[in-house]
Amino acid sequence: MFSRRQHTHCSIAPPDLLAQLAIDGTSGQKEAAVRALATSAAFRQQRAVMGRLTRQFGLPMGQLVGFNISATRRLTVYDNQTKGRTFLPGVRIRGWGEPASKDTSVNEAYDGSSETYDFYQRVMGRNSLDDAGMELVSSVHYGVAYDNAFWDGTQMVYGDGSGQIFQVGGLTRALDVIGHELTHGVTEFTAGLAYSKQSGALNESFSDVFGSLVKQYTLKQTALEADWLIGEGALVPSLGKALRSMKAPGTAYSGDRQPATMDHYVELPDDNDPRNDNGGVHINSGIPNHAFYLAAMEMGGNAWEQAGKIWYRTLTTKLHANTQFDEAARSTVEVAGTLYGTAEAQAVEGAWREVGVLP
C-alpha cells in the first residue's frame, strides 16, 4: 500500500509560485498558472508508483515502460505536437546518434539529456539514471503553452511555456533544468527521498545541486565562476532572473520564499494545497542548497570534483526515504572524511553549521 505522500509529482515550476500567480497574477498569468497546475496534477501518482516499483522490486525501468537499455540507444526525443493530448511519448523525432532536427526544442532536449548522461558517466561513473544503461526518453511540445517541465517517473516532459510565466522555449534551453529533473530519476533509483517536508526538500536540493553541476561541468566553470542559479532566463523577465539561487536563496524571483538558514525555515503542512508546496519542498531546499554552495566555495576549484562527489556518494549510498536535514548533513561530513580527509570534512561541516543545520 503506497502512502499518500508517495503520490506526488515533482516539476521544475514551484507550485507555490504557480498558485501565487493563479491568484494575484495578470489575467494571462492566471490562465497559464491554472492550466499548469491542472495539467501537473494529472501526473502526481505515476512518477511515485514507477519509482517505488523499481526500488522495491528491482524491476528495470526500461522493461516496465518498454524503453531500451542499450549503449547504442541511450536517448530518444519525441514530439507531443502541442495538441493537448495526454498520451506519451508522442511521435519519434530523433534518436541517439541521428542528425539534428529542424525543431530547436528537440535538439535542446537531445543535447541536454546527452550532457547530463555524460556528466553522470564521466564524473560519477554512473551508467544512466539507473546505473544500468537506461534510455533517456524526452517528449517536447507537451500540452498547449504548458508552463512546466518534469520527470514523470519514466521520462522527461517539456512544455513550451506560455510567455506569461516561462519564456517560450525557455524550458528546453535551460541545461540545469534538464539536469535537475533527470536527477530526480537518480534519486528514485537510490535514496528514494519521500517528497514531503525535509526529505522532499532534500530531494529537490540534490536535483538543484546536480542540475547546477551539469551546467558547470559542461561550461567548464569553477565554483567561483558559476552563477549558482537554477533556470536562469527561463522565467519571463517581469517575474525574475531564475527559479532559485543557491548562492543567495530568496532572491531568484518576485515572491521567492526560500530561506538560506534554519532560522527562517518555513513550516508548512503537506496537504495537497499547491501554496504549501508538499510541506515546503521547493522552499526549504534553499537551506541544503546554500550548504552545498558554501562547501563548494570553501573547497574551491571545480565543484563537481570534490563537493559534487561527496554529495553523490551520500545520495546513492547513505540516505533513505525519510532522511532529515541533520542526518543528511552528518552523512556528507562522514563521506567527505572517507573520500578526501579532515580538511574537506571540516569544510562540509562548517557549511552545515553556517546554515544552522548542525550545531
Rank of each mutant, 00 (worst) to 15 (best):
S139L: 00
H141D: 03
N148K: 11
D152K: 03
G159L: 04
D160C: 09
D160A: 12
S162I: 03
I165D: 12
I165T: 10
F166N: 02
F166L: 01
Q167I: 04
Q167F: 00
Q167M: 08
V168L: 13
G170S: 07
G170N: 08
L171N: 02
G179R: 03
H180G: 05
V186I: 15
T187E: 15
T187Q: 14
G192W: 02
G192M: 00
G192Y: 02
A194T: 15
Y195R: 15
Y195S: 14
Q198G: 07
S199R: 07
S199T: 09
S199Q: 09
N203G: 11
N203Q: 13
S205E: 05
F206Y: 14
S207F: 00
D208L: 01
V209P: 00
F210P: 05
G211L: 01
G211P: 00
G211N: 02
L213R: 07
L213I: 08
L219T: 14
L219H: 13
Q221Y: 09
L224R: 15
E225L: 09
E225S: 14
A226G: 05
D227N: 15
W228D: 10
W228K: 11
W228Q: 11
L229R: 14
I230K: 08
A234P: 00
V236Y: 01
G240H: 02
G240P: 02
K241F: 08
L243Y: 04
M246G: 12
M246P: 10
A248G: 06
A248H: 12
A248Q: 13
P249I: 08
T251G: 08
Y253A: 06
Y253S: 05
Y253H: 13
R257M: 07
R257K: 09
R257T: 01
R257H: 02
T261M: 09
M262D: 08
D263T: 10
Y265M: 09
E267Q: 14
E267V: 13
E267I: 12
